[in-house]
Amino acid sequence: MNLRCEHLSKSFDGTRALADLSLTFPASGIVAIIGPNGAGKTTLINVLTGFLKPDAGRYFLDERELSCLPAHRIAQLGITRTFQDLRLISQVSVVENVLLARPNQKGERLLSALLRNGVAAEENQNHDEALRWLKFVGLDGVTNQLAGELSYGQQKLLTLACCLAAEAKILLLDEPVAGVHPNMVERILGLLRQLRETGKLVVFIEHDIASVRQVADLVIVMDEGKIIAQGKPSEVLERPEIIEAYVG
């Protein structure tokens, strides 16, 4: 699956968040998007996942244009995301959060919910899948705890488990290691490395250059709504103009 965008522009009350941005993501691997605050990184993810409509430009998944599709439809096509401000359903259990992310559930149709034809079997299947992904991220010991009772780092792992349970091919992660303990950073980065082996595309926004160096196959540097550099971490991160854009 190839995700690409052409000439994307987006402004907020005169401030240009995306400025004629064109980009083609690789089919798989780990891509890091870095840049100073206000560079447009989260805006790019919001546009690609349908939560914001661009002022101009288009974006595609393979040959299918996504620009006019609503957010839920883009998610159904295999692109999922996390949020900077950790969106979870805090009043339900960990496993229920992951079950919510499971796609194509028969029981989510009203008539099937009433008649329950085949819903129980599918629910058991989804439950097993949810537990599998919770085990993958290391949350199998807290499946019945309320999501709101988890630590911040555990909640970050839960959002990742939700993305994986959605069976998405493309994961867009907004600062997945921000604000967590270094041990948890290592754990999350380790999970991302494992995901590389599964053929998924993982795109993550990050400010921590050390984390980017550890896992990214490709680095995209944004500033003022434009891409100012892209390439391997070893090439991009040593350039003086990149360091200048970060440090000022």
């Binding site: 609503p70 998610a75 979870l88 805090s90 796609p103």
Partner: peptide
């Protein structure tokens, strides 16, 4: 379950294809 998710955080529900 999705109704409850919509009640708590509709954006979460949309982000997961609902």
């Amino acid at each position: 379950r999705v109704l409850h998710a919509i009640r708590e955080d509709e954006v979460f529900a949309k982000a997961h294809g609902k």
